[in-house]
Measured scan of single mutants.
Amino acid sequence: IGSLMYASIFGNVSAIIQRLYSGTARYHTQMLRVREFIRFHQIPNPLRQRLEEYFQHAWSYTNGIDMNAVLKGFPECLQADICLHLNRSLLQHCKPFRGATKGCLRALAMKFKTTHAPPGDTLVHAGDLLTALYFISRGSIEILRGDVVVAILGKNDIFGEPLNLYARPGKSNGDVRALTYCDLHKIHRDDLLEVLDMYPEFSDHFWSSLEITFNLRDTNMIPGSPGSTELEGGFSRQRKRKLSFRRRTDKDTEQPGEVSALGPGRAGAGPSSRGRPGGPWGESPSSGPSSPESSEDEGPGRSSSPLRLVPFSSPRPPGEPPGGEPLMEDCEKSSDTCNPLSGAFSGVSNIFSFWGDSRGRQYQELPRCPAPTPSLLNIPLSSPGRRPRGDVESRLDALQRQLNRLETRLSADMATVLQLLQRQMTLVPPAYSAVTTPGPGPTSTSPLLPVSPLPTLTLDSLSQVSQFMACEELPPGAPELPQEGPTRRLSLPGQLGALTSQPLHRHGSDPG
C-alpha cells in the first residue's frame, strides 16, 4: 500500500511539474524568437521594450494561443456562430445594431475584428487614413492633437468618421493612444458598406441611429477645401490634362476667341504652333527640309505637354522668318557652300510665315494684346468667377478644330508651292551661260556676264508674291485673308516669265 501511494503521488507530481515546464519551455522559446528578432533588426531601446511588454501581456492574456488560427480551423457556418458569440456584447448593447435580422448580425459579426491594445500603444496616428470604424468594449483611450489631450473615450464609445457622408476615406486629425488595456472591435469601411448593401432595409436605420462619439476626420483635408492638395495627390493619381488660365478682364471677355491653345513656353509662336517648341509643326519652317525628324516628334510632343491658354504674339512682318533660324542665316552668309535649293526654301518659309499670320487673323479676328503681368498667370479653374468647365471645354474643342483646319490648309498650300517650284525647275534647270562666239564683223562684242542661278530668282519672285499679296490685293481696312490656291498659281508664272525669257546656255562643266 505504501509503495502504491508513493507511486501515485510521485507520478502525479511529476506530471504536474512536467506540464509546468512544458508551458515555461514554450514561453521561453517564443521569447527567444522575439529577442532574436530584436537583435537581428537592431531595434532601439524604447521600441524594444514595448515589443517585450506586449509579448508578455499577450502570452498571459491568451496563454500563447493564436485565436485567429484556431477560429480559421472551423467551417464557415461554425465561424459565424463563434463570431456572433464573441461580439454578442457589442451587437446587443450598441444602439445602431438593434433591430437587425439574424442574418445581418451574422454577416456583421464575420466582418468585425477584435484588437487588444496595451497602455501607451498608439492605435491611430495623425494623418493616417481612416479605413475603419472603432467600437470600444473595454478600457479607455485618449485622443491628442500635438501634445494636447482633446478627448478621453471609454466603454461603448465610437470613434472614426461617418462613412455615409464621404465617398473616400479621410485623414485623422489626431493621435489615438490607449490609456489602459483596451479591447476594441473594428470593422473596415469596405466590409461595412458591403453588408449594408446586402441589407438595404437595415442601412437607413443604421446610419440614422449611429452616433460617433469623436469624429477623427480632418475637415481641412476634404477635397475642394484650401488644404486638400495632399489628399488630392493621394487619391487622384490618374489626373486628366491640367489647364491653367490667364485672368480675363471685362474688356477681354467681350471679345470671342481671344486665346489660343499652345504648349508651355510657346507664347511667341504662331497660331498653328503645336507639339515641339520653336515654330509651326514643332520646328522652324525654314529647317523643315533639312530635319525630317521633326514630323516624327510632333505626335509625342503634342500628347505629353499640358495645355496652356495664352494670348497671341505680336504680328510678324511678311518677309521675316518666324524666328530662331540660325540654319538659314548661316546659309545666307556662306552662300557659296550651301545647297542652291536652300534659297528657294527660304522664300517658301517667308510665304508660310505670311500665310500663317494672315490665317491666324482670319480665324481669330481680334487685335493683338500685350501679355498680362506675371502675377495674373496660372489662375486655377476652381477659383470664384471662372467660367463653367463645359464652356471652357467647348472653347478648347473649337480652337482645336480651327487649328486642324489651319494645319490642313497650310499643308495644301505648301504642296502647291512645291509643285510650282518643281515645275519651274523642270522647265528651266539651273545653269550658267557659256561665252558666246564673236560675230564675223570687226565690231565684236565682249563675252556675256554669267546669269544668276535660278534659286536666287525664285527667292526674289516669291518675296514679290508675298509683298504683292500682303499690300496690293487686300483693300484698305479689310481683314488680311489668305489668297486662294488658283490665284497664287496664276501669279507665280507671271512673275517668273520675264526672268526666264532670256536664252540660257548650259555650261560645259555643268553635270545637269
Rank of each mutant, 00 (worst) to 15 (best):
P482K: 15
R506C: 13
S461T: 08
Q400H: 01
E365S: 14
G263L: 10
R395H: 08
T426Y: 13
A344L: 08
A478D: 15
D183E: 07
M425H: 14
V176E: 02
S394R: 08
S291E: 10
N339E: 15
S375A: 09
M221R: 12
L210Y: 03
R368P: 08
Y363W: 05
H205A: 13
E211I: 04
P370N: 09
N350W: 01
M425E: 07
S172N: 01
M328W: 03
S383H: 15
R241A: 13
N350S: 06
G508M: 11
L449Y: 14
Y432V: 12
D336Y: 05
I143R: 01
D175R: 07
C471M: 11
G497K: 13
H188E: 11
P479R: 08
R423K: 06
P321N: 09
V417Y: 05
G160S: 02
P438N: 13
L504Y: 08
R302M: 12
V195E: 01
E472H: 13
P264T: 10
A261M: 13
Q362S: 12
S353C: 04
P374H: 09
T500Q: 14
L420K: 13
L457F: 10
P317T: 13
E142H: 04
A398S: 08
S305R: 14
S203M: 11
I143E: 01
P318N: 10
P226G: 09
G146A: 10
Q402M: 14
E320M: 14
L396W: 15
P292Q: 15
L216Q: 01
Y432D: 08
A371V: 08
E232Y: 13
F352D: 01
W207R: 06
G174Q: 04
S260I: 08
C182N: 01
R246G: 12
E232R: 10
M469K: 06
L418S: 03
S346A: 08
L462I: 07
G508R: 12
S314H: 01
S353R: 06
N339K: 05
Q483C: 10
Y134R: 02
R316D: 12
D336R: 08
R217D: 03
F206W: 12
P493H: 06
T445V: 09
P384G: 04
L262S: 11
I187P: 01
S236H: 10
H505Y: 11
P311L: 04
Q400W: 06
T219K: 09
P475K: 07
H505D: 10
R401D: 15
L153C: 03
L418T: 05
D510F: 05
S291H: 04
A398H: 15
G127R: 02
P476K: 09
T445L: 07
L376E: 10
Q483K: 05
P264V: 11
Q422D: 11
P322K: 09
G265W: 12
P447A: 11
V149T: 09
M425V: 13
P169E: 05
P256H: 09
R168T: 14
T249H: 09
D128W: 01
P226Q: 14
N350A: 08
W207D: 01
A431P: 08
H205Y: 09
S303I: 08
V259P: 12
I152H: 05
A167P: 11
V195D: 01
G497E: 09
L210C: 10
Y181P: 07
E296F: 07
R401Y: 12
K171M: 08
A269I: 08
G477F: 15
S334V: 10
P374I: 06
V148N: 11
I222Y: 06
M414A: 04
Q400M: 04
D204T: 13
E258L: 10
D147N: 12
C471N: 07
T408Q: 08
A132R: 06
L420Y: 09
G441Y: 12
A269C: 09
G160C: 01
I212F: 04
R409K: 06
L410T: 04
P280C: 01
S353H: 09
S203N: 11
N378A: 10
G299F: 04
L210F: 14
E393N: 15
S244Q: 10
D330W: 02
I379A: 08
G227F: 09
T416A: 12
I187G: 02
T249N: 11
D197G: 10
T249W: 07
N404Y: 08
R409I: 08
A398F: 13
L399E: 03
D357P: 12
G127C: 01
N378S: 14
Q255P: 10
G508L: 11
P271K: 03
D147E: 10
P384C: 04
S433Y: 04
T373G: 09
E230I: 13
Q424R: 10
E142K: 06
S286F: 13
P300N: 06
V465D: 14
R241G: 08
L216V: 02
D250R: 10
Q495F: 15
F214M: 12
T500G: 07
T180A: 04
V259Q: 09
P493A: 05
S342V: 08
M198T: 11
R386C: 05
L410W: 10
P271F: 13
S463R: 13
P475I: 06
P311H: 03
A261T: 14
K155H: 08
E393M: 01
Q400R: 13
E230G: 09
A470H: 14
N404E: 04
M425D: 07
P440M: 09
M425R: 08
F135C: 01
R177V: 11
D157Y: 01
P503V: 06
S383A: 06
R386Q: 10
L210S: 03
